[in-house]
Amino acid sequence: MTVRFAFTPAAAYVRAARLVAADVAAHAGVATGLLDEVRQAVGEACTRAVLRHRDRGLEDLVRVEFSIGDRFIAKITDNAQDLRARSSGRIGAGVGGGDARANDHDAIEEDTLSEEITLIVLGGLVEDLVVTGPDGNGGTTVSMSWPLPGSGSATDH
């Protein structure tokens, strides 16, 4: 079974994504002790996607997919191009406005640090975390999974 939806990149909708994640995970049979982890991890990943869209001025929808098989899998996908890739030509171009280039570099470093911190938090929450991308559209996908009863890999932490 797969549940897919998308939402406007606004913080107000992250809570709804968290609630849907917890509900679908509970129906899938994720252990009760892991439901808060699912809710928090999906919230962090969705917040990351919303911020990536906001920082790049994108109105594209954030995509969410929950699938149930051997494990409960949550995927959150943004369309935000990597800032380093988008700005690399501008930073190293040597075109006038040295202060602007320095400010761009500082903003990129701050954004990268913020994303790294979010991924560290996610790594602490979720045993099975994979971040892929940027893809053909320039976005990234955060994939997380949790064991289901009878999957043979049910480790509760």
Rank of each mutant, 00 (worst) to 15 (best):
M1W: 07
T2I: 12
T2H: 01
V3Q: 08
V3H: 13
R4G: 00
A6T: 15
A6C: 09
F7G: 01
T8R: 15
A10S: 11
V14N: 07
R15H: 08
R15N: 13
A17L: 10
A17G: 05
L19N: 14
L19E: 14
V20L: 12
D23F: 10
V24M: 09
V24W: 02
A25R: 00
A26N: 05
A26P: 00
H27L: 11
A28M: 10
G29S: 10
G29N: 04
A31S: 04
A31L: 05
A31N: 09
T32L: 09
L35Q: 04
D36A: 06
E37R: 11
R39M: 07
Q40T: 11
A41Y: 05
A41G: 07
V42L: 06
V42I: 01
G43Y: 05
G43I: 01
E44W: 00
E44L: 07
E44M: 05
E44A: 05
A45N: 06
A49H: 02
R52H: 15
H53S: 05
H53E: 03
R54H: 11
D55C: 12
R56L: 12
R56P: 00
G57R: 10
G57A: 08
E59H: 10
D60V: 01
L61R: 13
L61G: 03
E65Y: 01
F66V: 13
D70E: 12
R71D: 07
R71A: 13
A74R: 02
K75E: 14
I76E: 06
T77H: 12
D82R: 07
R84E: 02
R84F: 06
A85M: 08
R86D: 10
R86K: 14
S87Q: 10
S87G: 08
G89P: 14
G89W: 12
G89T: 09
R90Y: 10
I91K: 04
A93L: 03
G94F: 04
V95G: 07
V95T: 13
G97W: 06
G98M: 12
G98D: 10
R101H: 15
R101L: 15
R101A: 15
R101E: 14
N103H: 05
N103K: 09
N103I: 06
N103R: 14
D104V: 11
D106E: 15
A107V: 11
I108T: 06
I108R: 12
E109T: 14
L113R: 09
S114M: 02
E115F: 13
E116A: 15
T118L: 03
T118I: 13
I120R: 11
V121F: 07
G123Y: 02
G124P: 10
G124Q: 14
L125A: 04
V126E: 00
V126Q: 01
V126P: 02
E127W: 02
E127N: 14
L129E: 03
L129V: 03
L129I: 04
L129M: 02
V130G: 02
G133Q: 08
P134L: 01
G136A: 15
G139D: 11
G139N: 07
G139K: 04
S145F: 00
W146K: 01
W146P: 04
P147W: 05
P147M: 02
L148D: 07
P149V: 11
G150N: 06
S151W: 01
S151L: 03
G152C: 07
G152I: 05
S153V: 12
T155A: 10
T155G: 02
T155W: 01
H157R: 13
